[in-house]
Design a protein around this nucleic acid. Sequence first.
DNA 1: GGAACTTTCAATTAC
DNA 2: TGAAAGTTCC
Length: 670
Amino acid sequence: MSIADMNPPQRAAVRYLDGPLLVLAGAGSGKTRVITQKIAYLVREGGMSARNIAAITFTNKAAREMLERVGKLLPADASRGLTVSTFHSLGLQILRQEAPRVGYKPQFSILDSADAAKIISDLLATTSKDEIRRVQSQISRWKNDLLAPESALVGAGNEFERIAARIYLNYQDTLLAYQAMDFDDLIRLPVRLFETDREALEKWQAKLRYLLIDEYQDTNTCQYLLVKLLAGVRGMFTAVGDDDQSIYAWRGANVENLAQLPRDYPRLHVIKLEQNYRSTARILRAANSVISNNPKLFEKQLWSELGLGEPLRAVQCRDDDGEAHMVAQRLLAHKFEHRTDFRDYAVLYRGNHQARLIEQVFREHKIPYAISGGQSFYDRAEIKDVLGYLRLIANPDDDPAFIRAVTTPKRGIGNTTLEKLGAYAGERHVSLFTAAREHGLQGRIQPAQLEPLQQFCDYIERMGFRAVREPAGPLIRELLTAIRYEQWLYDSEEPRPAESKWKNVQELCGWLERKGEADGKNLVELTQTIALITLLEGREGEEAPDAVRLSTLHASKGLEYPHVYLIGCEEGILPHQESIDTGMVEEERRLMYVGITRAQRTLTLSHCVKRKRAGEWVFCEPSRFIGEINGDDIRFFGKPGQPQQVTRDEGKARLANLREMLASKRKPAE
DNA sequence: GGAACTTTCAATTAC
DNA sequence: TGAAAGTTCC
């Protein structure tokens, strides 16, 4: 695929270098192609060095895919130094060099949302998950609007905001004491730096001379400002977006940023991409008819030349278990009939928990699957254990990491000792690690606890010294041996979970080792990077295994699959109850739109009559979005009078039947 | 101090 | 239904 093979607007978007450019790109209209081609064009025709170009995406997955595609267009030496990353990784890249200018040391830690929630819950002195979440998202909103704690306190309009603002103040102090940043800081701090430090701004403007921003409709105020600051008055950038696919308002994303762009850059050139290369006309029509229920920001009409295609299917299932079996059964039948690969299928859903039943049923029937999105890998205790050590080695002031590492594996230091240490550290205004090394501690902690504590600190300190000098891989393996982690796993667990946990740890080690070698990064840098990654990627260039993709709707954005099952199309799930209650149905509709437009050839929507929720049966209504699809383009299964409703037992029986047929390679008797 | 037991409560979405 | 927090016991 070269520029000559592109359609006229795509080509125009690639070649336009006269100033700021906005590309309004409908779903499947080849926007990734435009970005990758444009990078190659900038280098080949624009006389620009790859190290002066930055492409910004929203997920690591998208970044990786983009880098791979650029690699096919440009020789390795021409693409060297190219920045392709998420906003957060770009912020990290900037802060690694500029940390001292914003009050941090270069080895700062990055806290994930769970760590941040823990700090907030300690400050709030509450256990209510809901309360913690509300405060956490309020703080995040303030940060994204670049509001300092003091200003938040002054501007607080009600009791909740006053409480949240006070927590915000303490929270920031705590982060600074830990020398830790949260995700929002990774973008907020560079913006604050660039707003106040002319020299730093000019340095980075000189480095990043051309910016390409993907999924522009999902930028929040802070990200918008970062782009604006880096682009400067020259405004050399290409922003690509689709207002109909804006699904991150809850994270502060502001579709208005799309509308704001022409105001900020009067010279802005706008190009629309309206030809869809992905889906059949029926799928596209369904998507258009759903989204037409939303008000429009920009007028555009998507069309496709890929033929009418099959009607969509809406399947009613007896319950969530039946739904999982229905998907498995239909998928296997379809695969058998059409001789497709497992990788041609995706199951999409609103919430991560919905994947659980699908996983269970797929495992039962030996359907290979791969889950993308979600944070399950990092939620695992064994991964957090190891990362705790790595974070502490990189940054001894990281108290949460200290607590995790010093108590795992158990070394005779428990809550009582930690409380004493914490009290002492509080009096002295130092981190737990520093406190543990001070002589003043001797009278307050028993020698039996003091001794292992100091041994632990000595060890961490020695490793910290080596972490910036030696390759990461061998160092981590040495660490695991030293703390006898494998043995500890087997001592405290049944053999089976212990084995799988150790396997996960090995996987993490392997990833760190490969990444360290490939990018020449030391342990400190790797530890910072890993906080931003949701799933371990396989080896570079290695082919992905043939598996059905399981993904949330959010994580599926930008991806496409020949055959898609969109499960849980019910009121309360899609649209989500919270969104219905808070008048955010339009965003849910866009989410539905994103889901529909992932499909290339067939799309199956399912909903249940009832489902189990926290152990209780709940009755469900089909989603209003199913009703918004043209009747001509959709077939219903399992509605009263039609015999297609799949129950658990029927589903199981059909599956058994199918497996038999597959095994014996007979043709299905339907 | 730490393992083993009992009770409680909760499930948007993600860098 | 299942994980996380609280409680008891050695």
